[in-house]
C-alpha cells in the first residue's frame, strides 16, 4: 500500500477496555476515492474501530494516518475538522431542532463567527450565515429531503432521519465518510436508494467511503474492497468474490450463523 493513494492507513491498532482486548493489532487501509467496507460477525469490534478512527476511543497503541498525518489521540472535533465525518449506528440527531439546523451543525467547523460578530451582525457574519444556509440546503437537496427543511428532526420518518444524518455529515465537507450500518432498518427500496446515494457521494462529490454493514448483499454489491474482522483481528481482505470464497470468512460466519441476518 503506497502512501500517496491511501487516504486512511491503520497500523497495528490495539484497543482494550480494562484488560479485555477489543482490537488486537489491526492493520488496514482505505484507498483515496474508493468505497471500502468493514464486515464481521456481531461483536467483532467494527464500531470500536470507527470510534478509534473518529477519536471517541483512545487506542492503546498503533498508528492511524489520515491524509498523510497522524490523527492518533486527537479530539473528535479535530478529526472532523481534518476531513473525516461519520454517521452513527443508532441515529444521533439533535432531536428537537429542525432538519436544517441539524445539517448546519456540520458547517460549524467550516465557519468561524464569534460572539461579538453575532451580536453586531457584522457583514462578514451575515455573509457566513448565508453561506452556511445555502451549503446546507445543497446538502439536503443532495440526499433528497430539501422539502422537509423546517421539520423538527424527531417528527421525520426513520428513513428520512437517516438522510438528515448523511446530509449533516456531508455538511462537514469531509474527504472520508464513515457510515456505521447505513442500511439498518431500511426497507428494500430504501436500500436501493442508499446504494445509489453512496455511489453518488463518491462519484459526484469525490468523497471516499468506509462503511460497516451487516447486509451482505449491499456490501458485496457496492464495495471495492472488503476487510473482514473477527475478534478484533483482520481475517481476510479483498474484493467481494475473494471474500465470499475465503474459508476463514465462511468459518467465522458459519460458526454463528444463527445470529446473523443473512
Amino acid at each position: 500500500m503506497s502512501t500517496n493513494t491511501s487516504l486512511l492507513q491503520v497500523k497495528d491498532l490495539v484497543l482494550s477496555f480494562s484488560g479485555l482486548h477489543v482490537i488486537q493489532g489491526l492493520s488496514f487501509s482505505v484507498a483515496q476515492g474508493s468505497i471500502a467496507s468493514l464486515i464481521g460477525p456481531n461483536g467483532a469490534g467494527k464500531t470500536s474501530i470507527f470510534n478509534c478512527l473518529t477519536g471517541f476511543y483512545r487506542p492503546d497503541s498503533g498508528k492511524i494516518v489520515f491524509n498523510d498525518r497522524s490523527i492518533m489521540r486527537l479530539k473528535p472535533h479535530r478529526i472532523t475538522r481534518r476531513g473525516m465525518a461519520r454517521t452513527f449506528q443508532n441515529l444521533r440527531l439533535f432531536k428537537s431542532m429542525t432538519v436544517l439546523e441539524n445539517v448546519m451543525s456540520g458547517m460549524h467547523c467550516r465557519s468561524s463567527a464569534g460572539a461579538l460578530s453575532a451580536i453586531l451582525h457584522t457583514p462578514g457574519q451575515r455573509k457566513e450565515e448565508r453561506e452556511i444556509r445555502e451549503f446546507c440546503e445543497q446538502c439536503l437537496e443532495f440526499v433528497g429531503i430539501q422539502d422537509k427543511t423546517d421539520w423538527i428532526a424527531s417528527n421525520l420518518p426513520y428513513g428520512d432521519q437517516r438522510r438528515v444524518e448523511w446530509a449533516r455529515a456531508l455538511a462537514t465537507k469531509p474527504r472520508l465518510l464513515l457510515l456505521d450500518e447505513p442500511a439498518a432498518g431500511l426497507n428494500h427500496t430504501e436500500k436501493k436508494e442508499l446504494i445509489r446515494l453512496i455511489r453518488r457521494i463518491r462519484d459526484e462529490l469525490g468523497i471516499t467511503i468506509l462503511l460497516i454493514e451487516h447486509d451482505m448483499g449491499l456490501v458485496m454489491q457496492i464495495s471495492e474492497k472488503i476487510t473482514v474482522i473477527d475478534y478484533g483481528q483482520k481475517i481476510a481482505e479483498g474484493q467481494a468474490e475473494d471474500i465470499q470464497n475465503d474459508p476463514r470468512v465462511i468459518e467465522a460466519y458459519l460458526g454463528r450463523e444463527d445470529e446473523e441476518e443473512e
Binding site: 471517541f56 472535533h77 440527531l93 439533535f94 428537537s96 448546519m104 451543525s105 460549524h108 453575532a118
Partner: peptide, 22 residues
C-alpha cells in the same frame, strides 16, 4: 447565531456535536 446553535447541539447530544466538529 452559529454560537447559539453550537450550544444547543452540545446540550442536545454532546457526542454527536463533537462528531460534527464542535
Amino acid at each position: 447565531s452559529r454560537l447559539g446553535r453550537a450550544w444547543q447541539y452540545v446540550r442536545e447530544d454532546e457526542d454527536a456535536a463533537e462528531a460534527m466538529g464542535i
